[in-house]
């Protein structure tokens, strides 16, 4: 294993971005999944398409849209500027890029978890005097935990691998916005970087395996706890 201080920074930055993107997206992912599973409203199909769009769009396209929106002349950019927040080409932009790309995966997993919730449990809860938001927090949320954990790990892993959207909105600035995939890209384009690139690839594989293992273990634990 051959990691330079710059690589370590890239690894830590990747983790920071992935964790932030996942945590920020969780409440929105839960709310979106709940809206799509349990509520009837106009424009549901539109919401469905919008949420799933990043799954089929090239990440570069998403990155470009984000750049337009948050750029100097975009709405988001103007708002952030008036609030005094520097956004484009910072790690925050990388978080938003990761969150946008990983969001559909999160929502899909939570929805799958919600699908297995018996509707009569929700009816029982309502008939026992719980308001809809009470039911949401005391029945739907705890029973969606597995889906949320599965979705979070998927999204976390996807964020670690995010490249296309990130490079457009956050750039590839070593020490500032350079994440693992961007660092590998740099090494791969230099003739002497093979072993360095391989080291980072190894780190990527290790991280992915750890996430998948954690995902399995937590899922199993939840299952045994429920059976107890």
């Amino acid at each position: 294993m051959n990691l330079s201080p710059q690589d370590i920074t890239a690894i830590l930055l990747s983790m920071k971005i992935a964790v932030t993107a996942t945590l920020l997206s969780l409440p929105f992912g839960f709310a979106t999944a709940w809206l799509m599973m349990f509520r009837h409203f106009r424009g549901k199909v539109l919401l469905e398409v919008l949420v799933n769009l990043p799954l089929t769009l090239p990440p570069v396209v998403i990155g470009y849209f984000l750049l337009l929106f948050f750029g100097r002349n975009g709405w988001g950019g103007a708002m952030l500027k008036s609030a005094g927040i520097e956004f484009i080409f910072t790690w925050k932009a990388a978080v938003v890029a990761s969150a946008t790309v990983g969001f559909p995966l999160l929502v899909r997993s939570i929805r799958l978890g919600m699908e297995s919730i018996d509707r009569q449990l929700l009816q029982a809860s309502r008939s026992l005097g719980a308001t809809w938001y009470d039911t949401l927090f005391t029945v739907v949320l705890p029973l969606s935990l597995r889906g949320m954990i599965a979705g979070s790990s998927l999204m976390f892993a996807r964020s670690l691998g995010e490249f296309g959207a990130t490079i457009i909105v956050a750039g590839n600035i070593p020490g500032v916005t350079q994440t693992i995939p961007l660092a590998i890209y740099d090494y791969a384009s230099s003739p002497t970087g093979t072993s360095m690139a391989l080291s980072l690839c190894g780190v990527s594989v290790a991280l992915s395996v750890i996430i998948l293992l954690l995902h399995e273990v937590i899922g199993k634990q939840l299952e045994t706890r429920r059976e107890a």
């Binding site: 009569q120 809860s125 309502r126 008939s127 308001t131």
Partner: peptide
């Protein structure tokens, strides 16, 4: 709304919160 009606239901399958 159901919670204001105070009509409790016992279902065919117990439907306890797992």
């Amino acid at each position: 709304s159901p919670e204001k009606r105070r009509i409790a239901i016992v279902f065919q399958h117990a439907r306890l919160f797992p």
